[in-house]
Design a protein around this nucleic acid. Structure first.
Lengths: 193, 193
DNA sequence: CGCATTTTTGATACACGTCAATCTCCGTGG
DNA sequence: CCACGGAGATTGACGTGTATCAAAAATGCG
């Protein structure tokens, strides 16, 4: 009888695992995870994104080691996967497969069209991620990470986000009188009334 | 006892299946398949790419219907999946999952960097696809399809491919004295010598 | 052989990249 | 409590890689 692996909490910005390292699969219970291809010789950098509900590190079930590097873009909550009973793993695997496919299609879509639409698309993706209770609030990754995901430059991302603020689509959330640069309240419809 | 589904041959440009339609999964035995998101209300168009060895339509095992539309970009050979024995489907599914992940990362990479590098990257992907015997020959999709995959315009793709021809990286293959606009011999090293 | 489709090529405009300076936030130590 | 410094974010000025619009040429199919 093997002791169950513990759930993990990872602060924003920290590495979760490295490509090539041994390990097992996780379910992203909360937060946003960035996956990177090992940039040794091939295509460098950003490879994929995982948000709440997604499974990461599935490939370890097959190879025993991670194919990508994972990094927390926001504070993350991870739980071991598959859960208790391995019996359900067949359907469960299939389910996360289908989900990964849809996620991949979303990512591809985040890299076409005008810059503003891409950033907005990503924000939409991340906002859909937030639990219902705080549906209209998002914690964004750094400008640089947003830029990597959308294939833009961080200066461009910065300008676009400022523009969305001016258009009242985004509104900074104040914490102790100081507004953090990554926490926003989102109102896709614009200033509403 | 169910009669085994037949293998399918699909000519270039033809639809393989439509999103929402019932059906089952296939293995791409040869050729290149384009997958599109149903563009009804959400993100339109290109979603993913499948080349020789990839599995398409996996989601039917879960939902019974296709999540994407599939279209042959080159002449395609399809075989039913999973193959004869369903016993191996667990590991087989896992394997094609891992493959799909890597493919998705490749696609994302095809949408960053300079236009010429993207097109070249796609050609590389497609050339790696060809069987070893004709390793240096590729049949490319239409300029428009290449443009959709790389998030460029077909005019830009046309200019780039012409440029690669002038640089002797691509060389048109003559068929009956007429050179087709999509069959090329590839020499990534340049004119060699 | 003729027509529809695809590809090529040119001229021009603009969205985004690039380079660089400044500013804010936040932790550290005097 | 404030000076200091680093990381991230903002803003400006300018250049350029692609998009865009348009027209002609090549290809392929009936």
């Amino acid at each position: 009888m093997v002791a169950p692996r513990q759930a993990r909490a990872v602060p924003a910005g920290e590495a979760i695992y490295r490509a090539g390292a041994p390990g097992s699969a996780w379910r992203v219970a909360a937060g946003v995870v960035r996956l990177d291809s090992p940039d040794a010789s091939g295509e460098a950098g950003f490879a994929s994104l995982a948000v709440t509900g997604d499974i990461i590190g599935c490939e370890t079930l097959l190879f025993g080691t991670y194919a990508f590097s994972a990094q927390a873009l926001t504070h993350c909550q991870l739980s071991p996967w598959p859960g208790g009973c391995t019996a359900a793993s067949g359907a469960s695997l299939l389910h996360s497969f289908a989900q990964a496919q849809r996620r991949a299609a979303d990512l591809v879509a985040l890299r076409s069209g005008q810059a503003a639409d891409r950033v907005l698309g990503l924000i939409r993706l991340l906002a859909g991620n937030t639990p219902a209770a705080t549906a209209a609030e998002v914690v964004l990754p750094t400008r640089q990470d947003i830029a990597d995901i959308t294939a833009l430059r961080f200066e461009t991302v910065s300008r676009i986000i400022k523009g969305l603020e001016r258009a009242r689509v985004l509104q900074r959330i104040r914490v102790d009188g100081v507004h953090a640069s990554r926490s926003f309240r989102v109102d896709f419809a614009g200033p509403g009334a």
